[in-house]
């Protein structure tokens, strides 16, 4: 419930924030003028419906105005993209995945470092409540080692992966409902870590990345369950639409 409320508030705040970005970074006068011309051309289709020459000319003008409209949207869109992408990645850590349900399986993959031998043995040790169903499967070309694990009961523990005498931990969660900071990745590269900012960074010589393929989560509002991004889109667009007049923004 709290998680749903927070997602709603973040979505609304994002809509407002993007309105602010649009107001600051877009050519509002040009957008207004372009929209008016677009509307005029639509009216022209009705006013001169009996004249195909005018109708075709209006269509051509509509296309041109649409292109102009997109060009005008480009600048604010570019400004908005970076912060929104970072926000979405962060939100995906909260809302994108869910813990394994008891009886459910997932694939755990370790991407080996380029210096390590591709068939170097890697051992996996799971906490109580998590069963390792398969032996390690090596994909030599991709330098990956994978296991299938299965949740047997609700648990929050660590998977222990060991190679070359060095052990790294990967959190594993099984149970019901959403779980905050459920990142299915640990990475060594700082750049790659930006895509999983809530996860602890890897600090081992033999492994570059560990991935645990949690199932996708769904969020429920008004009795409807779907991907959180859909709700984010709906709420942020609704907020922006309802408040654009107050912010004097034309989009």
């Amino acid at each position: 419930m709290l998680a749903s409320l927070v997602l709603f508030l973040i979505s609304v705040a994002t809509g407002i924030g993007l309105l602010w970005v649009f107001r600051r970074t877009s050519d509002q006068a040009a957008i207004r003028a372009t929209k008016k011309r677009l509307q005029a051309r639509l009216l022209e289709l009705r006013l001169y419906a009996d004249d195909p020459r005018v109708v075709l000319a209006a269509q051509k003008a509509l296309l041109v105005e649409n292109l102009r409209y997109f060009a005008l949207m480009l600048r604010p869109a570019l400004y908005a993209t970076v912060p929104v992408v970072i926000l979405l990645i962060a939100l995906d850590g909260f809302y994108g995945r869910r813990p394994l349900a008891p009886g459910e399986t997932a694939v755990l993959t370790a991407v080996l470092d380029g210096q390590a031998a591709p068939d170097e043995p890697v051992s996996l040790e799971a906490p109580t409540g998590i069963a390792v169903e398969t032996p390690a499967v090596h994909a030599l070309a991709r330098r990956e080692v994978s296991w299938r694990i299965r949740a047997e009961e609700p648990v929050a523990g660590q998977l222990r992966l060991t190679s070359e005498g060095e052990t790294v931990l990967m959190p594993v969660v099984a149970g019901e409902g959403l779980h905050c900071c459920l990142y299915g990745r640990r990475v060594r590269s700082r750049l790659a870590w930006l895509l999983a900012p809530g996860a602890a960074p890897l600090d081992a010589r033999w492994v570059k990345e560990i991935k645990l393929d949690y199932p996708a989560a769904e969020v429920s509002y008004f009795g409807l369950r779907t991907h959180w991004l859909v709700w984010f889109l709906v709420f942020s667009m609704a907020a922006a639409f309802l408040l654009k007049g107050r912010f004097r923004v034309t989009v």
Binding site: V21, T81, V85, D92, L233, M237, A240
Partner: peptide, 13 residues
Amino acid sequence: QHLAYIGPGAGFA
């Protein structure tokens, strides 16, 4: 997984 989202402005546009 999403790669990019330009926001409601672009959405409206």
